[in-house]
Write a protein that binds this DNA or RNA. Sequence first.
DNA 1: CTCGTAGTTTGACAGTTCTCGTACTACGGT
DNA 2: ACCGTAGTACGAGAACTGTCAAACTACGAG
Lengths: 120, 120
Amino acid sequence: MTPATKSTAGSRTLEHPALEEIRLEGVLHALSDPMRLRIVTELACCEDELACSYFELPVTKSTTTHHFRVLRESGVIRQCYRGTAKMSGLRRDDLDALFPGLLDSVLDAAARQTDRLGGA
Amino acid sequence: MTPATKSTAGSRTLEHPALEEIRLEGVLHALSDPMRLRIVTELACCEDELACSYFELPVTKSTTTHHFRVLRESGVIRQCYRGTAKMSGLRRDDLDALFPGLLDSVLDAAARQTDRLGGA
DNA sequence: CTCGTAGTTTGACAGTTCTCGTACTACGGT
DNA sequence: ACCGTAGTACGAGAACTGTCAAACTACGAG
């Protein structure tokens, strides 16, 4: 994919879209998957960076990697390596600057829905 | 087919999800397509029901039909026939009841993005 | 009844998405 | 140096999506 990505030693860099590159459609699409919505909800809950392995998702590791990448590439989360772990955190500041109130509305909506459906 | 013979003419009935059936993921997915986001924006702008033919979308009629169906089946819009025309209107009330603030945030976000990009 | 306008249906196609399994790399601890 | 844990890359496959064209249905006006 990435041309000349001879990323041999150490430089485990992760590509993030710049603030101006974040598109609303991309963000909405990223959030429209149940698994990803769940990840984002937990991330918001904790208000801190979490390792991928923290989440106990009902999918394999490769699928997990995939979902985190979608979230990162759409600009919803920020990721960085920390030892062998990959930490993820919401890009709250950027999202709020670009689309004020959007993230909170979605988070609130997700909470309400969970309450309404899974509140068994 | 339920023989719900309404006084108003028309065996052309359109299926809409009940309020409790509307899912956040579905709504977000419906809104994550540029064409549909555009439709919703115009619908919100007009604050009234509009015929499909009002929209001058850069796609064929069948594609337009498809997008309107996705919006209706996800619970974002409400549709009914009126003569040969099919009128569409936002389900603002239902959406606000279910996910307070969500629609407005998305609309606002869409406006900001249009401003930021198209206002070049 | 006939015609035009508005929208639907169907089938097709290319592209994307979600998922998996297996093989792989990167780092830290012992 | 070795091993285990965390995550990645690479196919691959099934399902879904956005799009079109062409043939069709429904309604209103003459």
